[in-house]
Every structure is written in C-alpha cells, then in structure tokens.
C-alpha cells in the first residue's frame, strides 16, 4: 500500500497557535511537505520572522533561527555563506518583509543570495493587532487607517514581488494564493520551484503567498477567504512573475 498523504515529517506535533481560518497553518504545511518531498529536512535551516509566525521554529522540525523584525534575509545570508551546501529559507510576513525589512530583502535578492523566501502577505499586521501594512489595500480599514487607506496619505499597496523581479540577482519570483484547493496545489508547486532554484544554485527565489487574517480583517474564516479572492488578487495578480524556466 502506498501512502499518498500523511502528516509531514518536517512538522513537529505541536498544535499551531494560529486563529481559526488563518492560512499561516496551510503555508507551514506546504513548506514542510516540499521539504519532505525534496528530502532535505536534515540539510535545511529556516529563519522565523517577527509576526504571527514568530513561533514557526516550534512547528518546523529542523534547525531554525529566530530573527529580529525584518532581518531574516540578512541572517539567512550569514548562514548560507557559512554553509553554502545547505538549504536556507526565510518565512516572513508583510510587515516584516515589506516594511521594516525592505532593505534586507532587496539586497539579499540583489546579491542573488541562494536562499528561498516565503513571503506571507495578509495585507495587515496580524500580531500587533491589525495595523495598516504597506501591503494593505486602498480603502482598507485597519486600526491605524480607521477611515480606510488613503493613497494621498499612506501611499499605495507595495508590490514587493514585482519590485524584486527587476533585480538581476533574483531567479524565481512567484505570487500564489491559498484560498482554495486548486490554488493551494499551485502554491505548493511554486514553493517547490523556489527551493529547487536554490538547490540548483541559481539565485534568489521568493514566493509571495496571499494569506488571510480573519481576526484582524474582522471577518469569519469563510468571509475572509472570499475577501482575499475578491479584493486581494486584483491588486496582487497571481503567477510566476520571473522564472528562468530551468527548474520545475
């Protein structure tokens, strides 16, 4: 009998602390499945961010470092330079990667660091209680944009993936979503490609994953999935934004 699905080896048995309907858990699982399938669990070092996934190091069952807010790509750089034969990835939220850590991600990508970044974009600061993120949508109400994000005051939703495709050091950049099974499968394919890009020694790889935050969006889990589908994808189009085409 062939086992076609099971609990990933790369996850510990610690229950996730994420809110009901939060898609951080799905994304953790996809990363763990990919690491299992590539059989790199013993070669992998992950870096957890500051944000709701700060405790990712308790869920992933391989070596992990916990970063200061936004600095994961710099830490990944340090690890990868010491262990170029190992697989190094960062897992970061949008406040972490697209606000306080903008410089670190841009320069890691520009140096073509052979690392993989999983960028979880939920258009809000989850952990600190629903403040506006640089990725928040126009008109989106948050605790620090209570009347809706105003482009004249707060600027525009930042498109990190599109920005990073412009850099010569980036090899693979994709944006995916996890709002339904079809998209979850696509997300997993992209995550696998991003790890393979690193394993093949090509350059920087990032997968931006559109994710929900029912708690701070003020929606129930189903409504949150619907909101992501209806509102986020038009601002953040899905697909491979940059790909050498060599890995799949």
């Amino acid at each position: 009998m062939k086992l076609i699905a099971g609990y990933p080896d790369s996850l510990t048995d610690k229950p996730f602390h994420y809110c009901p309907g939060c898609t951080h858990g799905i994304i953790h699982r996809l990363v763990a499945e990919v690491i299992d399938e590539l059989e790199i669990k013993e070669e992998t070092i992950g870096i957890a961010p500051v944000g709701c996934s700060v405790l990712a190091y308790e869920y992933f069952d391989f070596d992990m470092q916990e970063a200061a807010h936004g600095r994961a790509p710099a830490i990944a750089t340090g690890i990868k330079r010491v262990h170029p034969d190992k697989v190094v990835f960062t897992y970061q939220g949008d406040g972490d990667l697209a606000s306080i850590g903008t410089a670190e991600i841009v320069h890691a990508a520009n140096r073509g660091e052979k690392i993989t970044t999983i960028f979880v974009n939920n258009a809000i600061y989850g952990m600190t209680g629903g403040q506006m993120a640089p990725t928040s949508l126009l008109e989106q109400k948050t605790t620090t944009s209570p009347f809706g994000r105003d482009k004249n005051k707060e600027g525009y939703p930042i498109k990190m993936s599109e920005m990073l495709t412009e850099l010569d050091g980036s090899s693979y950049i994709a944006r995916v979503s996890v709002h339904d099974p079809k998209h979850i499968r696509q997300a997993k394919r992209a995550i696998k490609k991003a790890f393979n890009t690193q394993i093949n020694g090509e350059g920087f790889a990032m997968v931006e994953v559109l994710s929900t935050c029912p708690t701070n969006w003020g929606l129930n889990p189903l409504a949150a999935i619907e909101w992501l589908k209806e509102n986020m994808i038009s601002t953040y189009p899905l697909g491979d934004l940059k790909s050498s085409g060599e890995v799949d």
């Binding site: 470092q65 200061a68 830490i75 750089t77 340090g78 690890i79 670190e104």
Partner: peptide, 26 residues
Amino acid sequence: GVFLQAESEVAAINMVYGAAGAGARV
C-alpha cells in the same frame, strides 16, 4: 574566508548573527 560588504550595519550584524548561529567564528 568570506568577506561581505552589507547594505547597512543593521544587515551586517544580522549576517553576523546568522553566521554565528551557524557555528562560525565571525
């Protein structure tokens, strides 16, 4: 050896963090 000019001191010290955590003298 590996010499890397970082984009800032903030990044540099975090590279040091990563490398030290990875077991290196840095």
